[in-house]
Amino acid sequence: MLARIVAEAPEFFSYYNIVFLLEAMLATFALSAVGCVIGFAAGFFLAVSRRTISVLLLPLRALTAAFIEMFRRIPFLVTLMMVFFVFQVLGLDISMFSVALISVCLIATAFIAEIIRAGLESVHRTQWDTAAAMNMNLIQTLRYVIMPQAWKIILPPVFSFFILFIKDTALASQIGVVELTYAGKVLNNKGFSAALVFGSILILYFILSYPLAKFGARLEQKLAAARNS
């Protein structure tokens, strides 16, 4: 196995292959990053909509709760297939990258909404009450009182989720999105040994994920220390 890796290595690490792998790595990163940014915006909206009290908005609250509860319980692979087939049936011609991105957004929205909900709840109830007694509306309360206190709680788990999805998007290779894992399968099909190819792919994922994870851990520590100021 080792002898074969050494023999193939020079050809494997050709300029063309390296560029191909780096581009795939970028796609992996983008899929997770863009998905989480959009998921954050949508998740924020969902988490806030759950805090409304008007009877008129009851259907919205129920829908939101159902969405969050459901999409956290469907495997990413199944979500991918559903989105893929929905677009196929609708006859809309969109790229596989878009299909994967939409899937990531759906799941990220559900997970991040749950994280934000917990973050909003972490701010003591009396802060909400006081803002209400001073006639602040929901948006003012969030903007001036709650979010400045809650973001320290919200950010670390959102960041963890983002890193988690760098790895989970490997499944998007299944529908042909050219990301890191797919690139590995392509190179493997070209005849490079699986050990060399998938070993390299594992290392590339590690290079992407490990520094981010370290940064996330530092961020969490910093924010935890800053909580009482």
């Binding site: 009396t126 006081t130 009182v145 400045p148």
Partner: peptide, 25 residues
Amino acid sequence: IVFQQYNLFQNMTALQNVTIAPTKV
């Protein structure tokens, strides 16, 4: 109302606590 537990906004200075509602609300 002045609450028994004061309930100041933890993320604001004393001055901001006093000015926030008159300016923003």
